[in-house]
């Protein structure tokens, strides 16, 4: 795929390609993170990127919003080629995205309501009553009713992530990115967050989701497509069934969380 044309269809799901990475390279100083990444994210599906820490998962997700620019290679979001865009044009593309950060990244100075309302107030000319209606609906959807006037320091980790998800959804984005949405949560909250992601996907059939996760139980339950990164390239991609039935030692080791295998600590 590296030297060919941009693919129109995802080979794993058969769905149209929404995001395409083609031969993307990225280094930070002497550290080469991405080494010719080729990846297709199917439209309207949930794609989960797995892989060990430091293999370039977060770097991959930051490239698609133009928060990082590749040293080499091309990235398309729909028909827009990001690598050829100015900062101003990238900002226009970012309006099509929502992102749930690893630590939620809520603004300390605002309460939950104002955090969720922030993208609406910045980008849409709505009356305050309309903002309130939309924000309160989302607050109810993510189970934060009664907490809208709490500031982030008064919230638990799970509540912060749910508020982050509501903020990401408030402008009805075309693409939703999750950067390790269950990191730091206990098993119950992890299950609740997984259900929320699955419910969000079910409620928004046109939403294209790209998730980074280490939580293999969640990966297998929410993903339509799984991509495994290792040392900056895609080493495996397929459906959850492909991963659970694979005999590949890399996949077996990762799914089992074992120290024995081709990946060394």
């Amino acid at each position: 795929m590296s030297t060919g044309e941009r693919p129109d269809v995802d080979p794993v799901t058969g769905h149209p390609a929404a995001i395409v990475y083609q031969d993307v390279w990225k280094a930070f100083g002497p550290h080469q993170i991405l080494r010719g990444l080729d990846l297709v994210v199917p439209r309207g599906r949930v794609t989960v990127i797995i892989g060990r820490s430091g293999t370039g998962k977060s770097v991959t997700i930051k490239h698609v919003m133009g928060l990082l620019r590749p040293d080499k290679g091309r990235i398309w979001v729909g028909d827009d080629e990001l690598t050829a865009m100015s900062d101003r044009e990238l900002r226009r593309v970012r309006l099509r995205f929502g992102i749930v950060f690893q630590q939620a990244a809520l603004f300390d100075s605002m309460d939950v309501f104002d955090n969720i309302a922030f993208p609406l107030r910045e980008h849409e000319r709505l009356k305050e009553a309309q903002v309130r209606e939309r924000v309160m609906a989302l607050i109810a959807q993510v189970g934060l009713r009664g907490s809208e006037r709490k500031v982030p320091s008064e919230l638990s980790g799970g509540m912060r992530k749910r508020a982050g998800l509501a903020r990401a959804l408030v402008r009805s984005p075309e693409f939703l990115l999750y950067d390790e949405p269950t990191t730091g949560l206990d098993p119950i909250l992890t299950a609740a967050m997984d259900k929320l992601i699955a419910d969000t996907d079910a409620a928004h059939p046109d939403l294209t989701s790209l998730v980074i996760s280490h939580d293999m139980h969640a990966v297998l339950s929410i993903a339509h497509k799984i991509v495994m990164l290792n040392e900056g390239v895609v080493v495996h991609e397929g459906t959850p069934d492909y991963f659970t039935s694979s005999d590949d030692p890399l996949i077996r080791q990762f799914l089992a969380g074992s120290l024995d295998g081709p990946m060394k600590v």
Partner: peptide
Amino acid sequence: GTMRVTEQIDALDAMAVD
């Protein structure tokens, strides 16, 4: 500085706010 290290500035960028 706190906003930077807790990704709040990245969040602004991600929400297309300069």
